[in-house]
């Protein structure tokens, strides 16, 4: 690939990379710094890039993720977070997922986005990045796993946990809105 083509393709992904970096850092200055370092690293490794069908975006996400965790380990700013992340890369039994105690068919999605944003903010950085790759980027489990350097099952676990947390928060919201609560009726699952 010609250098100018590489630069053009890489810059086309700037918005996506910036969004992902922001989910990791949650700080505009740190986000900008992380994105810049990612591009410096990408440029340095441009000769190693091979388009395996997914374009340059997954490759850049991988570099972004690696740079972020290299910094975390270097700075030891969030050692507990790293431990938590990798401790969660497991196939250990998860708690039974209790169903939402509300009627899905009565749920009003029009009023959920702000609550959802707050719920997402409460997730750890790795869960947010996984959610972003899944939700915004629309990547497959195996593509996310390749970016994060973890098994497919770990991605599924993270998505499962993240979705459970979001659903729980949405559930609180639905109760606020007066969505019919299953626990207050005699209805039973069919």
């Amino acid at each position: 690939m010609e250098r100018t083509d590489f630069e053009r393709l890489a810059l086309e992904q700037l918005d996506a990379l910036h969004r992902a970096a922001f989910q990791l850092c949650r700080d505009h200055a740190l986000t900008a710094d992380l994105v810049q370092d990612t591009y410096v690293r990408a440029l340095r490794s441009a000769h190693t890039f091979e388009d395996r069908g997914g374009g340059i975006r997954p490759w850049l996400f991988t570099i972004l993720h690696n740079v972020f965790y290299s910094r975390l380990k270097r700075d030891a700013r969030e050692p507990a977070s790293v431990d938590t992340i990798y401790a969660a890369d497991d196939r250990t039994p998860l708690p039974d997922d209790a169903p939402p105690a509300w009627d899905l068919s009565a749920f009003d999605w029009d009023h959920v986005d702000e609550r959802l944003k707050k719920a997402i903010d409460e997730l750890d950085s790795e869960a947010r990045l996984t959610l972003l790759l899944w939700g915004v980027e629309g990547l497959k489990y195996r593509e996310i796993a390749a970016i994060l350097g973890v098994p497919d099952g770990t991605v599924m676990s993270r998505l499962y946990r993240a979705r459970q947390q979001l659903i729980a928060r949405i559930g609180e919201f639905s109760a606020d809105l007066g969505v019919r609560d299953r626990t207050q009726t005699n209805d039973e699952p069919s």
Partner: peptide, 26 residues
């Protein structure tokens, strides 16, 4: 849920112009 997660996380929509200029400069 996935669609709404996508909507909620689609921010910031664009990278700052200063960052873009800096990377182009690099």
């Amino acid at each position: 849920l996935r669609r709404h997660v996508a909507t909620a996380m689609h921010e910031p929509a664009a990278a700052p112009a200063a960052l873009r200029a800096n990377i182009e400069s690099i």
